[in-house]
Design a binder for these strands. Structure first.
Lengths: 138, 138
DNA sequence: TAATTTGTGCAACCGGGTTGCAAACTTATT
DNA sequence: AATAAGTTTGCAACCCGGTTGCACAAATTA
């Protein structure tokens, strides 16, 4: 649905260039979060820098959120239309050590943490590593 | 205290070479977790590879634990003598966006997460980003 | 002492991420 | 429509943390 792609970009105030539509389209079709190298491979030939910067603007404008899953490659997944990436809106991510896929556990919010006196939380990253439901067999 | 260094290494079954004693000594004197580049700088001249491998054996033998704080550089901090790095023993880490130091919030265990059906957790990484008590003023 | 294992040091490489700069394209202004 | 200003894209090159291969040194064992 091209329409929904454009709408997302409009909502988040990102100019809908061909490149951006394409990238967002790809991202929204994934069943797991992907990184720059993986995104790059989805194109016959595309410039890494452009994809890199596209991802960056998307993150800035909160079209997508980035996930540091500990693999050394930052992953990205689309945000909901209403997402503002506040700590309270954050969810847990899961990295499967077998299929090596990183997924959003959107239904699992990051639990509240009681920080020590005078600490201020701006962001929380929580990644569970293990076996996903598909790989946890046998 | 040289003695405690040697004891730690003995407990975790790591042969106490000069290099290892030195590295562990440095690590245990830190008030925050440090990465390979920062460790390297503590030496007038030292080989990155050796330090790298020293850290690696330390992590393998659970003398120290590694922390992915999202900066792109893996940080390390000493474990307690009895630590086995099980999920239940894990604590939250904090990264200050101002002083850029990563610290162990050893008193704050990682909360239990109710994973979806058939998921298996082997490890959990939880990093809070924000302002530490020192930097959160004014 | 010789043979084997373990640790250290150098060099070189890898790969994700990032920047500088110029060309292409878009938008605003006259 | 023509020009100027801003934005996006593409290429090349670089940075840096991490990692590997290989040879030498040190320690351990036979």
């Amino acid at each position: 649905m091209k329409k929904s792609i454009d709408k997302s970009l409009e909502i988040k105030q990102v100019k809908p260039t061909a490149m951006r539509q394409l990238v967002l389209d790809i991202l929204s079709k994934q069943d797991h979060a992907i990184g720059l190298p993986e995104l790059e491979m989805q194109f016959a030939q595309a410039d890494r820098t452009t994809l890199y910067r596209t991802l960056k603007t998307f993150v800035d404008k909160k079209v997508i959120h980035s996930i540091d899953d500990g693999t050394g490659t930052i992953k990205y997944a689309v945000c909901t239309d209403t997402c503002h990436c506040n700590p309270s809106e954050l969810h847990v991510h899961f990295y499967c050590i077998k299929c090596e896929k990183t997924t959003c556990l959107t239904d699992i919010p990051i639990p509240d943490i009681q920080l020590p006196e005078n600490y201020f939380a701006e962001n929380i990253n929580m990644v569970v590593k293990g076996l996903c439901n598909r790989c946890n067999k046998g």
